[in-house]
Design a protein around this nucleic acid. Structure first.
Lengths: 230, 230
DNA sequence: TGACATAAGTTTCATGGTGTGACTAATTCG
DNA sequence: CGAATTAGTCACACCATGAAACTTATGTCA
């Protein structure tokens, strides 16, 4: 066990130091799940917390986040990015004045994480400390925004996937249904995926063709201003 | 003078504390300018720095940024937002391990700021400390992204403005030219501006009608996924 | 075997947004 | 007056979008 992980020590960091907290999101059925650590004292105020730690000497923020993820899920997800710093009066398990939140995504897995870790439904995060509740909301918001510029959903799928699986990931991340024909038309027009020779039969219904994420030459198409989101 | 402002003290903050730094951007002709403070020791390594300070006890991050802005330009701009936290080994004038960057925008003014403050061209920021150079770049990047969701350019204009002025702001912030007809067509289609009864004669050329920022009823138009930015 | 359910994938149509260049309009200056 | 300058519009080709209907390929079960 590592020292200074969230479950090992609580409220023992010196005041004034800062923490790095990780909101690791994953598809959990039709919802989003976030990785939380359950303490062995279920009656305590911090019964469930996000993974957090203080950086080691000379360690970059992102490296602290990576180390936390390696510790708790054994690997570093394909997508990890800083969301924001939080320093208001809201409670944090460390007592630190400031916490930097990192968001990460990993493929959906039916397996329950081992140890004190578990998946929490993003809509059932009332048990988290106040500051970490804000963090989960901010992480979800950041992901939805950055999806427009980064291929985050593809990081949540194996190398080969069906278009229905891809659409389902988009729907879970965005929290709304998408239209099948429009989704596929736009996807193909962007030359982001490439069909393979393999098909997957999922029981009933027509088999689905497997695709690979293989972005083609970008036509450097500077688009105009979009006012419709203001 | 306030204690602990950027020009008053250098490298005197306790190590381990963190700073709040502000990148205040403004249109400067065809370019962007950023507010910098020139020290009275021009030969020093930190000849020019962004405004920064450490938060007071119990002060929220945004409040520290607001206080800095009030100190140096006398008012709090209409748009101030956190960009990110920086904590790598790059040099910061305070010596602090971590710095939280805030971006802000204010209307272009031909007036030179008073005191030790001055406008630095965003492309001529080599004189800034390493970490603050990163901050200015990140602030510019963040603004370009958030312009799609927030009416930041309107915060850079007086209550009444011409459409040419608005387009010029967009061009300076985005760093590229826009097509006049497309810009206006999209703008009007979004019902963001409202014509007034006033016109402005700017010397030569046809007078321009003045508009007001008056966003109309949003038709809750959930748009599909955009793959063309990936 | 054949009807049905189910899921993948395509087609079609109406509508509306986009880039572009050319056009008109109103003013100042010489 | 006429040229220069800036504001504002138009027309056209093309692309993107939402929606619904349609086709294809499988499994299920009588």
């Amino acid at each position: 066990m590592r020292e200074r992980t969230a479950t090992a020590s609580r409220s023992t960091s010196p005041r004034g130091a800062f923490t790095v907290d990780v909101a690791l999101l994953t598809p959990l059925g039709q919802q989003l799940g976030v990785l939380a650590l359950r303490s062995n004292r279920p009656r305590a105020r911090d019964a469930v917390v996000l993974p957090w730690d203080t950086p080691r000497a000379g360690e970059a923020l992102a490296d602290t986040a990576h180390r936390l993820l390696r510790t708790h899920i054994g690997t570093v997800p394909m997508w990890v990015e800083q969301v924001a710093a939080f320093a208001d009066a809201k409670r944090h398990p460390s007592g630190a004045a400031l916490s930097v939140c990192f968001a990460a995504v990993m493929p959906g897995s039916a397996v329950r994480p081992e140890g004190p870790a578990e998946w929490l439904d993003v809509d059932g995060i009332a048990a988290l400390p106040d500051r970490q509740r804000q963090m989960v909301a901010a992480a979800q918001h950041a992901i939805r925004r950055r999806m427009d510029y980064e291929p985050i959903p593809f990081r949540l799928l194996p190398p080969h996937f069906t278009l229905s699986e891809l659409q389902h990931i988009y729907e879970v991340l965005l929290g709304r249904r998408l239209h099948k024909a429009s989704f596929r038309r736009a996807l193909h027009a962007s030359w982001l995926v490439e069909p393979t020779d393999h098909w997957r039969s999922e029981g009933r219904g027509r088999p689905a063709q497997l695709f690979r994420y293989a972005p083609r030459r970008r036509r450097g198409h500077r688009r105009g201003v979009r006012f419709d989101l203001l």
